[in-house]
Design a protein around this nucleic acid. Structure first.
Length: 423
RNA sequence: GGAGAGGUGGCAGAGUGGUCGAAUGCGCCGGUUUGCUAAACCGGUGAGGGCUUAUAAGGUCCUCCAGGGGUUCGAAUCCCCUCCUCUCCGCCA
């Protein structure tokens, strides 16, 4: 969430930003209601002050008659306060609905545009797209040929969008994880396996909406829990409500989790194979930083993603995400899109965002600077290290050979124990 | 899952209806003393928000003792619900 005061004082900026982000919100109504709320708040506080004064005077009353008189006065004030408070609560509820829908502000350098067609292509990886002197297969064909996947069994067990990985695919999944975690360990990230379920207030604090027809989130019936869509959710929740000493920042975490997504409304759009599935394993980077560290941290996270995919010898481009495609919490976002020969197109394999204090405000994650009064909101960032399902697509399709085998990239061989799959 | 105990400021830990935003100790900050450091001594020290105002200083008010609801003129304190922690038992990977 944005700071309420900031919205009031910068209504025009916020409106422009919402327009740039293609998010319809009624900022004017927010400002009007919030102005009313403040007035009402002052009235309620003043009544409280009076009631408090009356209560205090009762203890010192000199006789029973005076005590009773003061009590009556106290009752009257309380009734009055309750009536006003009801109005206030209704106002707050409406304000909150609008507030929640207002997205984060955008980095001044983020490309302005209504959707992903306005994303800016800013860099390419070290590996050129492969030129095949044969007809390349897509990952589904490759994996089925090599006995690496069973989609039918996945559908039988859990429905469309689920799958069994088998044989070398499992080794690859483990190797990819070990490779990514190893690199992050060297970079000072603390590895963590996280809960795969989270309370709905943690989901909401992170900017996910657990309910509603468009939700990406699976929720657990008769409970306040949902399956996480990414380790970003539990890692954000890790320090919810906490105040951290400033010298401990930045905190860099590496989350290992399963990710569950309903993919509601996504049918028919690039759904073949492992590209859009309901469950996958992901190694996620997450950072808590001081405000003046977050821009640099975003560049670090992006650089790490590039190193990971350069190491895997997978061709990719880096995209600076347009305002309309940023989602609610991100201030700036870079995606890596790997070349996928089977699709004949690039496909998103990572995404890293600087959420500034947008998540921290909701989750109440603060830091304290030694020698200074008060606390400040921390910044949060997240970035994909390896989303296994999509990394597999890019890896298999780019490293396939004319004879149907797949060359294992150098960096994974130690974990795979072989150089070629299907030989 | 069963039984019990408990959740208070950065930490430890008092506080069972009013003058308690909260004793005391530690820590931290400032000062005195001091070849230096330490010790000792003195003083200060929770957070969020509103109003005032120049988004200063100062003043002032409201809210916060796990979270939510209730009783009461008044709740850290009494009642109900939820969450969490600890100990023991059970069950298990």
């Amino acid at each position: 969430m944005l700071d309420r005061k900031f919205i009031l004082e910068n209504a025009d900026l916020v409106k422009t930003n919402c327009r740039n982000r293609n998010v319809p919100t009624d900022v004017d109504r927010f400002v009007a209601l919030e102005t009313q709320r403040r007035e009402l708040q002052v009235q309620v506080e003043d009544l409280n002050r009076q009631a408090n004064a009356v209560s205090k005077s009762i203890g010192k009353a000199k006789d029973a008659a005076e005590r009773e008189e003061r009590k009556a006065e106290g009752r009257r004030l309380r009734d009055e306060t309750n009536q006003l408070r009801e109005k206030l609560d209704a106002l707050v509820a409406e304000i909150d609905d609008i507030h929640r829908a207002i997205p984060n502000m955008s980095h001044p350098d983020a490309p302005i545009g209504e959707d992903d067609t306005k994303n800016l292509d800013i860099a390419h990886g070290k590996t050129p797209a492969p030129v095949f002197d044969f007809q390349p297969l897509d990952h589904v064909e490759l994996m089925e040929k090599l006995g690496m996947v069973d989609f039918e069994a996945g559908a039988r067990v859990a429905g469309h969008g689920f799958y069994f990985l088998k044989g070398d695919a499992v080794l690859l999944e483990l190797a990819l994880q070990r490779y990514a975690v190893g690199m992050l360990l060297d970079e000072g990230f603390l590895p963590m396996t996280t809960p795969d379920l989270a309370r709905n207030d943690v989901l909401e604090g992170t900017g996910y909406i657990p309910r509603g027809p468009e939700t990406q989130i699976y929720s657990i019936e008769n409970s306040d829990l949902s399956l996480v869509a990414t380790a970003e959710i539990p890692l954000g929740g890790l320090l919810a409500g906490e105040t951290i000493d400033a010298e401990q920042l930045p905190i860099k975490l590496c989350g290992i989790s399963h990710c569950f997504r309903t993919e509601a409304g996504a049918h028919g759009r690039a759904t073949r194979g492992l590209y859009r599935v309901h469950q996958f394993t992901k190694i996620e980077m997450f950072a808590f930083t001081l405000p003046d560290q977050s821009d640099a941290m975003l560049e670090q996270l992006r650089a790490l993603e590039c190193r990971l995919f350069d190491g895997l010898q997978i061709p990719y481009r880096v995209v600076d995400t347009a305002t309309g495609d940023l989602g609610g919490p991100a201030y700036r976002k870079y995606d890596l899109e790997a070349w996928m020969p089977g699709r004949g197109d690039y496909g998103e394999v990572t995404s890293t965002s600087n959420c500034t204090d947008y998540q921290a405000r909701r989750l109440n994650i603060r830091y304290r600077t030694k020698g200074e009064k008060g606390t400040q909101l921390a910044h949060t960032l997240n970035g994909t290290a390896i989303a296994v399902s999509r990394a597999l697509i890019a890896l298999l399709e780019n490293h396939q050979q004319a004879d149907g085998t797949i060359v294992v990239p150098e960096v994974l061989r130690a974990w795979m124990g072989k150089e070629v799959l299907g030989a």
